[in-house]
């Protein structure tokens, strides 16, 4: 069983790990989700707290867009599989992660619907 975390912002993977206030956590095995993914809203953005949460939640894989070298190295050292530089909507990213085709630095172009969902809340 794998446990995936994606820092998100609206429908998209959050631009920055250190500024994310919302994370999506999904459990999966053999390419299928185990239950509904859950989202956690954080009180405030904090890279250290996010790192702490990743350890506490026993996350095995993390997909994000921008992340500082320091945090990246820390998570890799904690044996977490980190794919960064991912630009796109989190649903596509989640699907690609489940079927094992997501690659570092992947860019997914939004269609019109997805474009309009990246809005000020």
């Amino acid at each position: 069983m794998h446990k995936l975390m994606i820092p998100i912002q609206g429908d998209f993977v959050a631009p920055r790990f250190d500024l994310a206030t919302e994370v999506l956590i999904a459990r999966y095995e053999d390419g299928s989700l185990l239950g509904e993914p859950k989202t956690i809203i954080m009180e405030r953005p904090s890279d250290e707290e996010l790192c702490h949460m990743i350890i506490e939640e026993h996350i095995t894989a993390m997909v994000c867009n921008g992340i500082e070298e320091l945090h990246y190295n820390f998570l890799v050292w904690k044996k977490i599989n980190v794919l960064d530089g991912i630009i796109g909507d989190w649903q596509t990213v989640l699907e690609k992660t489940l079927n094992g085709t997501l690659q570092q630095g992947a860019v997914f172009y939004p269609d019109k619907k997805e474009t309009s969902s990246y809005k000020t809340q």
């Binding site: 631009p15 920055r16 500024l19 867009n65 630009i87 860019v107 172009y109 474009t115 990246y118």
Partner: peptide, 13 residues
């Protein structure tokens, strides 16, 4: 990145 939201690429604070 043409056609991508600027903020997703710029990643500013």
């Amino acid at each position: 990145v043409r056609g991508i939201h600027g903020e997703l690429v710029l990643r500013s604070n």
